[in-house]
């Protein structure tokens, strides 16, 4: 683990955090993150680059706490059916988006 790698990881994480802060729309953030993750997860890139992209950019861009916070809005309003539907719809849509990214990266190479 050298200095340049660590610095790039930190800068990528800051970039992802500010991008998430400015977009501020939960659906867009999670879809973009899942797409990028699926696109790059099986590509033949070097190990440190993959670590920076997946563990630095995607993981800081999408956040599970944002997902829980989004669902918390429904709990305090008392919409339990809406909570259940949104919960499953978000996960299934993200899986589909990741599958699209995965197939696209396979087609290109």
């Amino acid at each position: 683990m050298n200095k340049k790698y660590l610095l790039t990881l930190l800068l990528t994480a800051y970039f992802a955090t500010f991008l998430r802060f400015y977009i501020n729309n939960y659906f867009v953030i999670s879809f973009v993150g899942s797409f990028v993750y699926g696109f790059y997860v099986s590509r033949s890139i070097s190990n440190s680059k993959r670590e920076i992209l997946l563990s630095g950019f995607c993981s800081c861009f999408t956040s599970f706490s944002g997902f829980v916070h989004f669902l918390y809005q429904f709990i305090i309003q008392g919409y339990y059916l809406k909570l259940f539907v949104y919960l499953n719809v978000i996960v299934i849509l993200n899986l589909i988006v990741m599958y699209i990214g995965f197939q696209l990266s396979r087609k290109i190479t």
């Binding site: 955090t17 993150g33 899942s34 993750y37 995607c58 993981s59 800081c60 599970f64 706490s65």
Partner: peptide, 23 residues
């Protein structure tokens, strides 16, 4: 706390990838 710490600590796309790998 909410934007910086929790946003970078938790990850949603890796969770989705674990489900994807199981599929």
């Amino acid at each position: 706390f909410s934007v910086g710490f929790l946003g970078c600590l938790s990850t949603f796309s890796s969770f989705i990838y674990q489900l994807f790998k199981l599929i």
